[in-house]
Design a protein around this nucleic acid. Structure first.
Length: 703
DNA sequence: TCAATCCGTATC
DNA sequence: ATACGGATTGAC
């Protein structure tokens, strides 16, 4: 019976991105279940693939070949993840095979074999209702078409979850009282407990123990007999979540998934998840695809961190993967962070997600006192000598904290930011008058050009203040340990940056110098934080410079004790800057709303959909010229890439002669753009001219 | 008239 | 990719 197997073959060629049917030999029939790895003969070659479903007959007219063999009876690709991978491939104009390579770790036969025994010993009984997953009729895709009702019921009240427990009741409903600090916090948790598909954007209060909050939310799902998935940017965050999960869940009921585990351990934990032995998974970006059973909740924290953007084709972002997943599996979604990204703001503004935020009183009670010391730094940033000095405010804040017996956090930007052009008088980033892209100097004694559309700007005129003068924003001189040591003799200096990242520092006086993202936790909180070289961060030639700066500032400031306990933050940038204002008021939602409005105005993502085509100049130009762009779309460029200062810290000498075009369409045409790009890729791969053209939707680096 | 070659197409 | 078929080309 059901002699046909529908297979997703491991070919990433765009024009072969569909399923193929094979016959199942009698001997393979029992093992050939949906989700197993198979080996098939495809166009003469033997290739890997996944069996997606068994069918009574094929709709293929030609003759079918037989499955070469079933690699293993282990079903590693659940129907839900298969559907998710398809949706992600479509969203990013990529192929299913590419996404599946991100979603399913390589097989490790020995682990698979030993794991079976373990599973027999203490695996939870296979849930009977796993079988009745809904048919693949969900069309999650983007914000407006998701079919889950966004409203959160106001119903509160005691839990009914005990009645729904399907596993032996060792998982207790956690105390989620701390969520009460947030408006709609309890409502959200109640919805998770009841398994309702609510969606929320959460701004953690300064000082919040966010791993604990995530763990509580996950345990709430688990107590109801369902699963949860938590995604964080890096291994350090994951360690914290791991520790927090240990407080609320038995060790056997969750795993963490990280990229650095090694093949055997990685596959072992993946199997624990796919076999339903664990209910909760926490991990870094690839974990967004983990086959957690009966999901009640997917969550991502700090979605502005660029580590959540996958660097391999088709470059999906974990937040988007989880959005698709929450729609496809009808589970709750939580997008959290201290700051709020423009993307998250769009979810709130469109009504797709609800804000889970504290009220002003709650924020005031939790936040440190934040002040700006811009002028001192404005001059200081220009001269290395002056840069070694702390502003009076920063000095006072640091001394106050040290006297109170607490450590001081000093955040310094990483080296290697590319210099951007800014207005010489008001310091706002210099923008192209044609497309609002950032201006850059392609070389000495040359005129500024737009990094997006390539138009030369001969007569700059600042749209904000009218100035005609440009300046390159200085890269902040990193204050050395010696310089700070001179300012505070006798105080221990601790550095956390690059290779040597410290997880935590003791609760005693110390100067802790850290780059963004590497800030150690202080046992009882920092007494003060000094956020140095604000202009270097704000002046970065990046679409997200403002948003990213606030994200980093808030991440550091959140580690400082509240103002009532003497906590102070001094930021080295001018008070009049909107980003500084947002930090002082601790207003992540307001900043995100302003950011989104600005991007709307300028035609930047996520207010519009963008895609980039990168490759040899001639090909890029030809591809962009022939591609049918959805109505209302624009082509920006092509711009030679090697003409421009390379962004970020990555050297990119290899792409000589390479160019890029940007395609910009209204958000309503995002899907058409994706399918047009897929068609383009398919046409190119048929004619073997593929390979040197890189297609990227929502490129993370827009400069 | 036949083979070498090119191009387009399918890959179950 | 790789394999195949049909059209095209070129030498006898």
């Amino acid at each position: 019976m059901l002699p046909v197997a529908r297979v997703a073959v491991d070919v990433s060629l765009a024009h072969l991105d569909r399923t193929f049917d094979y016959l199942v030999a009698d001997g393979d029939s029992e093992a050939a279940q949906p989700g197993v790895r198979v080996r098939v003969r495809f166009s003469g070659r033997l290739l890997d693939g996944y069996l997606l479903e068994r069918l009574a007959k094929s709709d293929h007219d030609g003759r079918l070949g037989f499955l070469e063999r079933v690699v293993s009876p282990e079903p590693v690709l659940t129907p839900e993840v298969a559907r998710l991978a398809r949706a992600v491939a479509d969203r990013y104009a990529g192929s299913l095979a590419d996404v599946l390579r991100l979603a399913v770790p390589p097989r490790h036969a020995r682990v698979e074999a030993t794991g079976v025994k373990a599973a027999r010993v203490h695996a939870a009984p296979v849930d009977a209702d796993l079988a009745d997953v809904e048919p693949a009729d969900v069309e999650p895709a983007d914000v407006e078409s998701a079919d889950v009702e966004p409203a959160m019921a106001e119903a509160e009240g005691p839990t009914t979850a005990t009645g729904r427990l399907e596993v032996p009741g060792e998982i207790a409903i956690p105390d989620v009282g701390a969520w009460g600090a947030y408006r709609a916090g309890n409502t959200f948790l109640t919805a998770v407990r009841q398994g309702r598909p609510v969606r929320a954007v959460w701004q953690a209060l300064p000082g919040e123990d966010w791993p604990a909050r995530l763990a509580e939310a996950a345990a709430t799902a688990a107590a109801g007999g369902r699963g949860a998935l938590l995604v964080v940017p890096d291994a350090r965050d994951l360690q914290r979540v791991d520790a927090a999960l240990a407080h609320v869940l038995p060790a056997t009921s969750y795993v963490t998934l990280a990229a650095d585990l090694g093949p055997a351990e990685r596959y072992r934990r993946f199997l624990a998840c796919s076999r339903g032995q664990v209910k909760v998974v926490a991990g870094t970006r690839a974990a967004a695809f983990a086959p957690v059973r009966k999901l009640a909740l997917v969550a991502v924290f700090d979605d502005g961190d660029d580590l959540l953007a996958e660097p391999r084709a088709p470059y999906p972002h974990a937040r988007e993967v989880l959005m698709l997943r929450s729609a496809g599996e009808k589970c709750a979604l939580l997008v959290g962070g201290f700051a709020r990204t423009a993307e998250a703001e769009l979810l709130v503004a469109s009504g797709w997600a609800r804000p889970v935020v504290a009220d002003r009183a709650g924020v005031r009670a939790a936040a440190p006192r934040i002040e700006a010391a811009g002028d001192e730094y404005a001059t200081g940033a220009d001269s290395a000598a002056a840069g070694a000095r702390l502003s009076p405010a920063a000095f006072a804040a640091a001394r106050g904290a040290l006297t109170a017996g607490r450590p001081v956090l000093i955040q310094v930007p990483r080296r290697g930011y590319s210099p951007a052009l800014a207005c010489a008088s008001c310091r706002r980033p210099a923008r192209c008058r044609h497309c609002s892209g950032p201006l850059a100097l392609p070389g000495a004694n040359r005129l500024p050009v737009c990094r997006w559309c390539g138009v030369v700007e001969a007569h700059f005129n600042c749209s904000a203040c009218g100035s005609h003068e440009l300046r390159t924003t200085a890269i902040g001189a990193r204050r050395t340990a010696e310089e700070l040591g001179r300012a505070f003799p006798g105080v221990p200096l601790i550095t956390s940056a690059g290779e040597t990242v410290r997880a935590a520092v003791p609760a005693e006086p110390a100067l802790v110098i850290a780059t963004p993202g590497a800030e150690p936790l202080a046992d009882n909180g920092y007494g003060a934080a000094l956020l140095l070289d604000g202009y270097a961060l704000l002046g970065r030639a990046d679409l997200r410079a403002g948003e990213e700066t606030l994200r980093r500032w808030m991440a550091a400031a959140a580690l400082v004790v509240p103002a009532s306990a003497g906590g102070r933050v001094v930021v080295g940038a001018d008070t009049s800057l909107p980003t500084v204002q947002a930090l002082i008021r601790w207003d992540p939602a307001g900043a995100a709303a302003a950011e989104l409005a600005a991007r709307q105005e300028l035609g930047f993502p996520p207010a519009v959909a963008m895609a980039s085509l990168q490759g040899p100049e001639a090909e890029v130009g030809a591809a962009a010229g022939t591609m049918p762009l959805p109505g209302g779309g624009e082509v920006l460029g092509p711009v030679p890439l090697d003409d421009l200062p390379s962004s970020g810290s990555r050297a990119r000498a290899r792409d000589t002669g390479a160019a890029r075009v940007l395609l910009r369409v209204p958000n309503a045409e995002r899907k058409e753009l994706a399918s047009a790009l897929k068609t383009l890729a398919a046409a190119r791969s048929v004619h073997k001219e593929d390979g040197n053209l890189r297609i990227q939707i929502d490129p993370s680096e827009l400069f």
